[in-house]
Design a protein around this nucleic acid. Sequence first.
DNA 1: CCCTGATTCGC
DNA 2: GCGAATCAGG
Length: 205
Amino acid sequence: MSWTDERVETLKKMWQEGQSASQIAKELGGVTRNAVIGKVHRLGLSNRVSGGRPEDEAPEPVAASPAPEPAPAAKGAAPRPAAAPRPDPVAEPAAAVREEPRPAPAAQPLPPRRMVVPAGQPLPPQPSANEISPEALASVREVEKKARKLTLMELTERTCKWPIGDPATDDFWFCGLPSLPGKPYCDAHVGVAFQPMSSRRDRRR
DNA sequence: CCCTGATTCGC
DNA sequence: GCGAATCAGG
């Protein structure tokens, strides 16, 4: 692979968005994070942040994006582990996680809201009425207390991406415990997310 | 251990 | 110019 104009453009864009070198490398493909970092330096895009600014560099205050683009699927598809778990086993939230470099540093103190009903019609993805083994639920509750409470950006391929809390408030985070190899969730959450769909009995409710 | 960016230096 | 190896951290 070579640094075509297009690839360089992607690199610049992502770097300025604050994406890590490894993330950029993954996105581009065919290059390692080292290659990305090397290129970043050659392009003169280093990120000096230290408090003291030599006073020569001033441009690029990183203006707030005009179109904030609400979190992709993270919000709308966010399952409610506590009450109605089981996010789509197929479409793991990882994709949505990849984006959103700036999750807005918390804001609204307490907006007038009652229930979170993600606008739009997309609400069906909910096999709902799920029967999760009591033990699975129990371990999940337990685990949630030990959750690392990671933010979107802190998630990696090895951290549990199970969302906890209400996405519409600051009271929201991701489990973050070590995920099972190849799985998007930790042991406890995998147990709730991937149900054999077998033990399905009638359920008074 | 996982991850980050920074630097060096042979190619 | 490129990027693996290495360094220096969190």
